[in-house]
Structure formats: C-alpha cells, structure tokens
Nucleic acid binder design. Structure first.
Length: 375
RNA sequence: GGGGAGGUUCCCGAGUGGCCAAAGGGGGCAGACUGUAAAUCUGUUGGUUCCGCCUUCGAAGGUUCGAAUCCUUCUCUCCCCA
C-alpha cells in the first residue's frame, strides 16, 4: 500500500508499505547489482549509510550464482543478510548495456553470458520467475531500454513490444505469487514507461500501462545520453500521465541535481550507480560540489571530505588519509568514499522529505543546487 | 687476477646509423563515469617564443651529411672462474 503524506507542488512525500517494511519516499535505492555494493559494502554497512532499499539485478544473479541456487538458500534477503526492502531490476537495462551480446525477439532476449559466453534466454516470464526465486520486495517488469538515438519507428515498435511483455509479466507474477513454495507471495510489480524523448510515445505508453493498475510505475530509458533539458522535459510531460497515487520511479537517475529536479516533477523512487562508481574512482560529493580526492591539492588536507557530514568516513578520516589510501590502492580508500557518497545520497533524501513535509521544497531545491556549484 | 654482460628520458625496460624527444609498462598530473561486462576508461608526462628551436640515451673524444645506435679511452654495476 502506498500513501501520500504530503504534496508540495508536484513533489510527493509518501510511504510504501511492504512485507519487508516501510519505505519513506522520496527514496534513493542503493545499487548492489550482484547482491553487494561494489566497493566492498554489504548488509553490515547498509544501516550505517541510511539505506532503506537495496537494489539487485535479475540478469547478473541469474548468470551467477543462479536464481535457483539463491532460492534453495532461502531467497535473496537471507542470502545477503538484508531484511529490509529489495528491488530487483528485471534485466531490461542489460538489453541496453550488453548491446553486443544479445538479440531481441518478440518472445524475449537471447543473451550470450558476459561471464562464460553460454546462451541465455530471458523473456517476461523468465524475468518474473527469476525475480520470484530471488524473492525481492519489488520486481521490475521486463522491458527494453532502447538506445535513445535510434529512430522513431524503432522506438515505437520497441515500446509496443515492452507493453506486450508487461502484460505477460503481470499475469506471470500473479501466478507465481499464488504458488505454495514462492518465497515472497506479496511481491510487488512496477511497470516501466519507455519512449525515448518522443512526447506522444511516452504519454500514450504511460496511459496504456496506467490502466494495468500495477503497484508502481517507473520511467526508464532516460539519462542514457540525452541532455538534462530533454530529460526534465520528458518528466514534465510524462509523470502527469502516470497515477499520482502510485510510486513513481525514475530508473538509473542520477546526479544529486537530477534527483532534486525530478522530485520537483513528481518522482519518488531513484537508483543510480554514480555514488558508488564515483566513490570507487575517488570522486566524492559535498554540499559545495564534487571533489576528486586523487588531486594533489588534498595531499596535506587534514579536514574531512565534508565538514557538515556525519557519515562513518567523515567522522573519522581526513581527505589526506583517504587520498593516500586511494593512491596506494588500498581497498579501504574506495570503501570510505563509497560509504560517504551513499550516506550523502541517503541523507539528501532525508532532507528532501523534510522539505516537502514543510512545504519548502522549491526554495530548498534552489539553495541546494546553488550550493553544489560553489566549489 | 682472468673472462663475460651491461649502464636509455622520474623508475623498469625496448630501441643497434636517418621514419627517435626515443615503443611498452609503472609512477606523476588531470578528466570522464547516470536501472554497473567499470577498483574502469581517456588524455597528458624534457625545455621553450610549441608545424620551429634547444637539451637528453654513464663520461670524454672521434668517424659520418647524420649517432642512443659505429670506434677509442675512461668510469660504474652485475655475473662466472681463480
């Protein structure tokens, strides 16, 4: 059940109740593709960084160790020892990112495993089956995330196919949730809107999938190369075509600024690889902008990454120390950066929720974005 | 004492007459990264008045139109034998 506690313009302060607990929205979901956050973070770290929802990937866990294996071991929650909500992405993004290793057909997608080259097939039913075996809190519909530079007719065909797949996903998850040995019989299903940057395709698709009365709706296929202006325009045009009383999830986005802009446009779920990847690469977020801790200027900098931050890294270590660890290729260096960045993101969401509750969102957002540009 | 191998740009290391300011690593300096095939990738790394000129391949001298590359001497390092 999803309830809206407060609206401030289009920005929503909500609460999604799940079998694994409550999700306060807007929320940032912390990406742990292979049931771990890259940079050596596991469930032992997640509470410390303020994580509400962990996100794992259907394709990757199907390839290794195998969803059947995880099911035998009691499901993903038990496997990774994280008992709060987990969202599993459907494998749709791998159609985009593993572009050279797959072939799309009406019935689904044939992949050559990026691990050992073996042939794999994932269609809507297979994706739902895998996610059911994992027992995640929220399953994502199997969609095609198309390259946004492809021509209009391709995008239209792709979106139509994604709709047909979505109907199959919905039927399949109902069937699976009713089975005796299903790990999470209350697994939720979010549908995914596509359409690249074409207003009419996006809006028509949004309306069609809204009629399916799913548990939530995602907007996919953004932040894949188009300009920020195009992304914000698509949100302006598309979010109003999705049901307000359902969670709205902008997949794979984004920078702190992207998130602030999208919340204002009605989005309340986010996930992004950036804070973890940038952290591993020594780039850390602060309220005054992003720093590259590899830079020589931090050699003798005894201050913490962000003086205003209460994260486990900032309350203990200096920029100079973390820079040394990064330069020395000590795993701790990237781990401290990833911890800081994810804490920064999750804390940003705390502030966003408060700002909406107090109906001060617009001013908050402006000041925040202004701050990011200071350094 | 005798014999052998070798000293290359910050480091390791290729190069044995012109296409060499000198391959490739490493290190240094910077940049990128948006539902993770990413602890990855890219650029740059002698000086300068930068499509040119100057300095550099252990040192000094020589051969040549031209040398990191050939010759002579010196010097240092390593290995083997005594």
């Amino acid at each position: 059940m999803y309830e809206i506690l407060q609206m401030d313009g289009r920005a929503k302060r909500g609460r999604l109740h799940t079998v694994h607990g409550v999700i306060e929205t807007p929320v940032f979901m912390n990406v742990g593709t292979q049931a771990a956050i890259k940079g050596a973070l596991g469930s032992i770290d997640l509470n410390g960084i303020g994580c509400q929802v962990e996100l794992s990937n259907t394709y990757h866990l199907h390839v290794r160790p195998g969803d059947e294996v995880i099911k035998k071991l009691g499901g993903l929650h038990h496997f990774m020892s994280w008992h709060k909500p987990i969202l599993t992405d459907s494998g749709g993004f791998q159609i985009f990112s593993l572009n050279s290793l797959r072939k799309i057909k009406e019935e689904g997608v044939y992949f050559s495993s990026h691990v050992d080259g073996r042939k794999l097939f994932i269609g809507p039913e297979e994706s739902m089956k895998i996610q059911s075996n994992l027992g995640s809190t929220i399953a994502m519909a199997f969609d095609e995330c198309p390259d946004s530079t492809l021509d209009r007719s391709y995008i239209q065909d792709s979106v139509d196919r994604t709709t047909r797949w979505l109907i199959k996903c919905k039927e399949e998850i109902s069937r699976l949730n009713a089975l005796e040995d299903t790990i999470n019989k209350s697994q939720l299903l979010f549908g995914i809107n596509q359409g690249a940057v074409y207003t009419d395709i996006r809006q028509n698709h949004a309306k069609v999938i809204s009629d399916l009365d799913l548990d939530g709706y995602a907007i996919g296929g953004l932040a894949v190369g188009e300009t920020h202006e195009a992304m914000y325009r698509v949100l302006d045009e598309t979010v109003p075509c999705l049901p307000v009383h359902k969670p709205t999830y902008l997949m794979g986005v984004g920078t702190p600024e992207n998130i602030l802009e999208a919340v204002e446009r009605g989005v309340d779920f986010f996930d992004c690889v950036l804070p973890a990847r940038n952290g591993r690469h020594g780039n850390v977020y602060t309220n005054k902008g992003k720093l590259n801790l590899f830079n020589e200027r931090y050699l003798l900098d005894d201050t913490s990454i962000d003086e205003e931050c209460d994260c486990p890294s900032c309350t203990r270590y200096s920029r100079a120390y973390i820079r040394h660890l990064l330069k020395a290729k000590e795993m701790l260096g990237m781990r401290l950066c990833v911890i800081h960045n994810l804490y920064f993101y999750n804390h940003l969401m705390d502030e966003i929720r408060t700002a909406i509750e107090e109906k001060k969102y617009e001013g908050y957002k402006k000041a925040k974005i202004e701050g990011f540009r200071n350094e």
